[in-house]
């Protein structure tokens, strides 16, 4: 049994929230540079240049990459041999979000009720996903998610007979409808299988995979490549203004499902796909 104070978790969440919102991942910057080379549209190239400059300015001045610093999505993976001390885990995560968003000059975008829409003023509560795993480590990922791309995400309950082609059409339809709203170039997370809520979470988790890393399963990795090419062939381009670069990456996560179902979730993200992880 290992003891971990929830104060450490609070401070880790605060630091991760600030870092995720101000530092563009090195893989994303590399992908933008590669995209800049293959983009044929002059307007598209200018936009990719702006995104690269933006990453530099954000890092140098600790200014958020984007003004929508998102809902704080937090993944907590707790080893079953960990004993948490000093208070509630959930409170610690939310205190960390409040601290990071306040001290880090991040935007507070959370309203307390979907209809009365009164801002909670500290970006809490976070959306927290817990997982219990073997061992005595505790791993936290903070993945701030903007609403421009979240609003364009979709979930489809396909029939098994629709198969791979159904998945392909679901992804392409979602990206077409997202168009310029979701700030392409996109990073796309796809969940396939499970049930209604499992599938959505698979799609969200797919966005946490390092950009460009293929699925370990060769068949799904092939579908990832095929779908990414098909998405780029839509011609939507950077910011929807036309071009050959509509997405920088596409990852698929799968799970066993019911004999009668083929759930597909498409979680759209903008180019940054912000997420930062630490193990305690």
């Amino acid at each position: 049994m290992r003891e971990i104070s929830v104060d450490l978790i609070r401070d880790a969440v605060a630091a991760l929230a600030v870092k995720a919102n101000t530092v563009v991942d090195a893989r994303v910057e590399e992908a933008l540079k590669t995209a800049r080379q293959r983009e044929e549209s002059p307007v598209g190239r200018e936009i990719l240049d702006q995104l690269l400059q933006n990453a530099e300015i954000a890092r140098a001045t600790a200014t958020p990459i984007c003004q929508d610093t998102g809902l704080a999505v937090v993944f907590v993976r707790v080893g079953q041999d960990v004993h948490l001390t000093g208070g509630s885990l959930e409170d610690a995560v939310n205190q960390g979000v409040a601290k990071g968003y306040t001290d880090g000059y991040l935007r507070k975008s959370v309203v307390r009720d979907p209809l009365d829409r009164i801002n909670t003023k500290d970006n809490t509560p976070a959306i927290i996903h817990y997982e219990i795993v073997p061992g005595d480590e505790l791993t936290i990922t903070v993945a701030p998610k903007g609403i421009g791309s979240e609003n364009m995400s979709r979930l489809y309950m396909l029939k098994p007979s629709q198969g791979a082609e159904g998945i392909r059409q679901a992804v392409l339809q979602t990206v077409r409808e997202a168009g310029s709203n979701a700030c392409p170039p996109l990073v796309i997370g796809v969940g396939v299988g499970g049930n209604f809520e499992k599938c959505a979470l698979l799609a969200k988790r797919a966005l946490l995979r390092p950009l460009g890393e293929p699925s370990p399963d060769p068949a799904w990795a092939a579908m990832e490549r095929d779908l990414l090419n098909a998405v780029n062939d839509l011609g939507i381009g950077p910011q929807g203004l036309g071009g050959r670069v509509t997405a920088l990456g596409l990852a698929i996560e799968t799970y066993p499902t019911h004999i009668g179902g083929l759930p597909v979730a498409v979680n759209i993200n903008c180019h940054v796909a912000r997420h930062e992880t630490v193990s305690l």
């Binding site: 001045t61 200014t63 003004q67 610093t69 000059y105 935007r107 421009g148």
Partner: peptide, 18 residues
């Protein structure tokens, strides 16, 4: 909807919304 400015900044991050 910009982010809050840090001390000395005119405004925080300020890109377009949908």
């Amino acid at each position: 909807g910009p982010t809050p400015p840090r001390p000395g900044q005119v405004i925080g991050a300020a890109g377009p919304t949908t």
